[in-house]
């Protein structure tokens, strides 16, 4: 479903060139739910942006659904939640979802039934006609999830899954993710929340300073969680460059 091979991405030019992602390789199979964790500036968002075609890699390959990352057709089966997006304040929630659904290739008739359905799914039922400038940060994040789900994508890529959500919002979103997992969707998301990753993911990829330092299965994470805190495990992995015990 998703393959990254020896990916290198740098920012800046000449002597000021800074590598953000430094030769990472990983694969995600269909139906997997994989978490991508790392400190701020570790290279999580940069990797996701390459997968979506927002930025280009200096070298290496990234493929989504068998197509080169960034090709418009590769995005046909992707739902994407950006880390930060202030949706158009002049639009109503229903109009925004109609815009994204139409661009995703959905027919107007299908959208008419899908929009209330997806708004209900993210806890925004009845808000279809509300202007987005009146939405709170949490509501904007829920709407972000709704736009990612509008076309019923096979693959969900989410940058900072629950950022801006209150505990109830987080709980709701976790339930949505569990439902999507049951439906066999592939999910790849970045997060700072270790407990969230442990609760939802089949596998976790740890990244630090542009390099993958460790891949951990859910079973390994649960074992770790019984012995010591996940935070302690994460810090230990970062400090040891991924050679610490699981």
């Amino acid at each position: 479903m998703l393959a990254v091979d020896d990916l290198v991405v740098s920012y800046g030019r000449g002597p000021k060139r800074v590598p953000a992602v430094n030769g990472i390789t990983f694969r995600i199979d269909a139906g997997e739910c994989v978490g991508f964790i790392g400190a701020n500036g570790a290279g999580k968002s940069t990797t996701l942006k390459v997968l979506m075609g927002f930025i280009y890699a200096d070298s290496g390959n990234a493929e989504v659904c068998g197509l080169p990352a960034g090709a418009p057709e590769s995005r046909r089966s992707i739902g994407y939640l950006p880390e930060v997006a202030l949706y158009y304040p002049f639009m109503k929630a229903g109009e925004l979802l109609e815009l994204y659904g139409a661009l995703g290739g959905m027919a107007r008739g299908d959208l008419r039934s899908r929009i209330p359905e997806v708004l209900k799914q993210v806890g925004l039922d009845g808000r279809q006609g509300q202007l987005l400038k009146t939405f709170s940060k949490g509501m904007q994040q829920r709407l972000g999830i709704a736009q990612a789900l509008i076309t019923k994508p096979d693959l969900l890529i989410m940058d900072e899954l629950t950022s801006g959500l209150d505990p109830l919002g987080r709980y709701d979103l976790h339930e949505i993710i569990r439902g999507l997992k049951k439906d066999g969707r592939t999910i790849f998301f970045s997060s700072h929340e270790l407990s969230e990753v442990e609760a939802l993911c089949d596998r976790v990829i740890l990244i630090d300073r542009g390099r993958i330092i460790r891949e951990v299965t859910q079973a390994e994470l649960r074992t770790v969680g019984r012995e010591r805190s996940l935070e302690a495990f994460f810090i230990e992995q970062v400090r040891s460059g991924g050679t610490g015990d699981a």
Partner: peptide, 14 residues
């Protein structure tokens, strides 16, 4: 600036 380009470009749109 507002980040709305991301959900737009996340569709099969060039």
């Amino acid at each position: 600036d507002k980040g709305t380009i991301y959900p737009l470009l996340a569709r099969p749109v060039s």
